[in-house]
Simulated assay, not measured.
Amino acid sequence: MIIRRRALLAAPALLPAAARAQAPEAFPARAITVMSGYAPGGVTDITSRAVAERMGRELGVPMVVENRAGAATSVAGTAVAGSRPDGYTLLMGTSTLAINPGLQPSLTPKEPLRELAPIGMVFRTAFVLHVHPALPVRSTAELVAWCRANPGRLNFGSSGTGAVNHLAQALFAQRAGIEVTHVPYRGGAPALLDLRAGRIQAMFQAVLEALPSLRDGGTRGLAISSADRSGLLPDLPPVADALPGFDVVFWQGLFAPAGTPAPVLARLEAALAAATQDGDVRARMAESGVTITTGDAAALRRTLEAETAMWGALIRDAGIRPD
């Protein structure tokens, strides 16, 4: 009987009150599946696993990250949106949830704000604006001035059409009133090779990916895309110093299927808060260039709402289409 009671006590917080009242005494503790739309090994995957492991300890049940990459993360998002809303299938969603409705409206979930329930923020990570050293600019203001004097001549790379760093470039050009040539690649690595070789002249890139090139002088850093400075590149000012209000990051947040009972969401939100406030987790992620963010469900909803509107308008106004 003791073993059976322990199994029951391991997971009751994930059940709404009515379900707990009807559950058999030996209701089994089950693993929670956290789906990720990215392949194993990247920053999103590493962060997902660190946070899930810490949440699992808080909840007293295993949390298993399952990678379901494909279709601009919609494979994972669709699987979670269509799953049973009981708290046992979650999504580590990212900025793509705000981008896909405007860029690829045929992808599901078509309405993430309606089909998914926010639990809380996990991280924000900025991009560094860096250029080939031969480009005669050393600040954002100088880059803007050069582009105005040389319309269309700057080849601005990205890791792919519709990627957050591409949209950062498009927003930068729109806000600065400049004309640049977008050169999309299949990932950040080949784009960086061409930036170092001078085949493109500028790029917004994840800080951790750009660091080696910045340190060996292969590229020159001008600014950070977030409103705040980067802990890894504290000497670089925000783009917002030259273009007020500019604040572009790649973010990750935890979601459940819409319809998940409020008590379940509250328990998951509390466990996520404990994980994102954990000093060891924050220190480990800082080494990967990731700023763990403690933000509740309301903050995540506000971010998704604001960015869905912002990216949708930019995609429409700039005529951005998927490759």
Score class of each variant (00 low, 15 high):
A297I: 08
P257K: 12
S225Y: 10
D278V: 13
G253I: 05
L232P: 08
S226N: 11
A227Y: 05
T44N: 11
L192F: 07
A270M: 04
G312F: 08
L90S: 00
L91N: 01
L113F: 02
G231C: 09
A71R: 15
T47W: 04
L135C: 09
L8E: 02
G221S: 14
H132L: 12
R84L: 12
Q205E: 11
T276F: 01
C147N: 14
V128D: 02
S106N: 00
L193P: 02
D216Y: 11
A309H: 07
V80T: 02
A202R: 03
A202P: 02
A210Y: 03
Q104C: 03
V131F: 10
A262W: 05
P136K: 13
A242Q: 03
H132I: 15
P257L: 09
F255Y: 13
Q174W: 10
A270F: 00
K110N: 00
W251G: 00
P184C: 07
G41F: 14
M310N: 05
N150P: 08
M203H: 11
F250Q: 04
A71N: 13
F255Q: 13
R282A: 03
S139D: 03
A18Q: 09
I32F: 00
S213A: 15
M203G: 08
D216F: 15
D235S: 13
L135S: 12
P24E: 10
P85Q: 08
Q205H: 09
E53N: 09
